[in-house]
Design a protein around this nucleic acid. Structure first.
Length: 635
DNA sequence: CGCGTTTGACCTGCGC
DNA sequence: GCGCAGGTCAAACGCG
């Protein structure tokens, strides 16, 4: 699939979407009503899983933000498929962002008008007309072949006129056709070649930037390390003690954190090494594969069972007294780093903001509601769900409507699934997992983390419009994928310290929009990015840990990647952007040691899976339930 | 009757 | 130490 770098892309209808039918309740606003509704619908909703919603077509795609980059790719063919839906074009309310796509369409249309059904025949005039096209495209379209073809055709026509011999005509026509085909073939080859070049160029650029980033980080880290050492000799001693190397490797450690996270997640998990962190380990839950976060929750759970309820708290287990603050300011102790990373991972969250009236986002997972509370500052109750696809699955999610805009569903995922996920769920899982991983990769220091994340995401999707934010300042490191229409970064109040990740899509209603795919794309892309980022460039990651990474996992990862790429293209109106994302994704997966998706891959650590459910019934008021709610009173 | 939701109670962490 | 808030548990409840 990765090889699929090929341009053929299969749209996977199984990607997750918001799914109306499955929805439980509509809006929290209808509080008590919701409760009732929920109850009634609950079963159904919970049981509906892999909804196959029709992929959005070009229609939705056209909504993307204005392309900031034009990818030197001749999208004619692809576009034709997607854009050939006139009805859609009409229906869709074109957003400003569509411009790019519109242009494409226009171009195509123009071409058609010219009577050249075949791009190859595109005349020079056409080429000239399309000022927007990239040089590459121009070249392609200009068609060397065209010359050839034309030449031959011209000659033939002339000949025909002269000779007036039918057979000759036929022969010449055949020749012409052949020539055309050859020309097209040649053109395709050339185009292919260009794409490869572009790809390589992008790759090289990426690497360069990455290296630069790493360098900067190292420098920054060095500075911090020095300070830390100066301030806390004790720490230094400890670190020395624990470090075989004597803690000389500070800079590297920093980088390893990301790795550690990955490694911890990937490797530790399965092997269950015996370090303290693992003490909480748990359980009998099948740590099958690499459940990165599953650990987290698994820990929590098993921790509960083993250590008592109190320990169940995610925080306490490994870090002892350290709170999140500790996590934010990582120490440079190798073993500790790992632990901390794990802890961080446990707490890392991926939040998805989706504007949708649809009560539910079908993410392919099964959820069971285990609680609901009124959260401070939000009239809408927050519902707590836990993944029930497998016993002991640590993944949980919180669903709450945005107080400011109740059409927005905020779903927050925690943990990694400890079980195989269906394709539909895989997408989201990989997304969230990737996001979380990315976040963690930069969680060492909030600043760095943010920078990294931002960098990664930006690198990934240079196009614009914000879709994701990363907040290390929040109680829990959180990556927010904003799938709501967010043309302007300022639209949503952002926490200080948040970075926006550029996303090309202005999703509208997740239920039917490509927005649903964004997280997937985002995650996958991020994941891939992170894989290659210096942060997680560890061998651990790149070289599938023996036994840890199942071949199948790799396959899955590839599949994931491809699906993500596909989704990106399918969902994103801005094809160039989508293509860029796809390529990025492909690059990631095709990387030498293509890091198997720790997450997405098989059962692994797919961190989160998601689905939004609006819900609500109210019930537990926050705070101690002492403050009785009206609903409580009812009870 | 089984399963999922509801919801009051409980636990923990944090800030004052 | 107290209160608040977030999160979870688990008995009760409702639905199919």
């Amino acid at each position: 699939m990765a090889e699929g770098s090929g341009l053929s892309i299969d749209l996977d209808p199984n990607s997750f979407f918001l799914h109306k039918p499955t929805v439980l309740n509509s809006f929290p606003e209808e509080t008590k009503d919701n409760n009732i509704v929920n109850n009634k619908n609950s079963k159904r909703s919970s049981k509906v899983f892999f909804p196959t919603t029709p992929l959005m077509d070009a229609t939705t795609a056209s909504r993307s933000s204005p392309p900031t980059i034009q990818f030197p790719v001749n999208l004619n063919c692809s576009l034709d498929q997607h854009t050939s839906l006139p009805s859609d074009d009409h229906k869709r309310t074109v957003m400003g962002e569509m411009d790019f796509f519109a242009q494409k369409n226009n171009k195509l249309v123009d071409a058609d008008d010219d009577g050249d059904a075949n791009p190859i025949h595109t005349s020079d005039a056409d080429v000239k007309g399309s000022t927007e096209r990239t040089a590459l495209e121009l070249n392609v379209n200009t068609g060397l072949n065209l010359l050839t073809t034309n030449t031959s055709s011209d000659q033939s026509t002339v000949d025909d006129g002269i000779s007036s011999n039918m057979e000759d005509k036929r022969a010449k026509r055949a020749k012409n056709e052949l020539a055309v085909l050859q020309a097209e073939l040649e053109r395709m080859m050339e185009e292919n070649q260009r794409l490869r070049e572009t790809l390589s160029q992008v790759t090289s650029n990426y690497n360069a930037v990455q290296m630069h980033l790493v360098t900067l980080m190292q420098q920054q880290h060095d500075g911090k390390a020095e300070k830390a050492e100066e301030q806390d000799p004790m720490m230094e001693e400890k670190s020395e003690q624990k470090k075989p190397n004597g803690g000389v490797i500070v800079p590297r450690q920093f980088m390893d954190l990301g790795l550690a996270a990955a490694a911890a997640a990937d490797a530790d998990e399965p092997s269950l090494s015996s370090s303290e962190g693992r003490s909480h380990d748990r359980s009998g839950s099948p740590h099958n594969n690499t459940e990165v976060a599953s650990k987290e929750f698994g820990l929590r759970k098993s921790g509960n069972s083993e250590e008592g309820r109190g320990t169940g708290r995610e925080d306490s287990p490994d870090q002892g007294s350290q709170g999140w603050g500790a996590n934010k300011v990582p120490r440079f102790n190798s073993s500790k780093n790992v632990d901390q990373t794990e802890a961080t991972m446990r707490k890392a969250r991926v939040s998805v903001r989706a504007r949708s009236e649809a009560p539910m986002i079908t993410d392919g997972c099964q959820w069971r509601k285990y609680g609901q509370k009124m959260a401070k500052g939000n009239p809408c109750p927050r519902a707590y769900y836990r993944c029930t696809m497998a016993a002991g699955c640590p993944v949980r999610k919180q669903v709450q409507r945005c107080a400011e805009d109740r059409t927005i569903l905020i779903t927050t995922y925690e943990g990694n699934h400890n079980h195989p996920l269906p394709p539909a769920a895989m997408a989201m899982a990989s997304t969230t997992s990737s996001a979380a991983r990315m976040l963690l990769s930069g969680s060492m220091s909030s600043a760095d983390g943010l920078m990294n994340s931002n960098f990664l995401t930006r690198t990934l999707l240079p196009c614009s419009s914000s879709m994701a934010t990363i907040s290390a300042s929040a109680p829990f490191p959180t990556v927010t994928l904003d799938l709501t229409q967010t043309p302007s970064p300022l639209q949503f109040p952002r926490l200080p310290g948040q970075f926006q990740v550029p996303f090309p899509n202005p999703p509208h209603n997740l239920a039917n929009s490509p927005a649903a795919l964004l997280p997937q794309i985002f995650g996958q892309a991020l994941y891939n990015q992170s894989k290659f980022s210096g942060l997680q460039m560890s061998q651990d990651m790149e070289q599938p840990q023996s036994g840890q990474q199942l071949p199948q996992g790799q396959q899955n990862s590839l599949a994931d990647t491809v699906s993500a790429a596909t989704a990106a293209i399918a969902a994103d109106p801005n094809f160039t952007a989508a293509l860029a994302a796809a390529i990025t994704s492909i690059i990631g997966s095709s990387h030498p040691n293509n890091v198997p998706n720790n997450n997405a891959t098989n059962f692994t650590s797919a961190t989160n899976s998601s689905g939004n459910v609006t819900t609500t019934s109210n019930s537990n008021s926050n705070g101690n339930n002492k403050i009785s709610n009206s609903s409580f009173a009812a009870n």
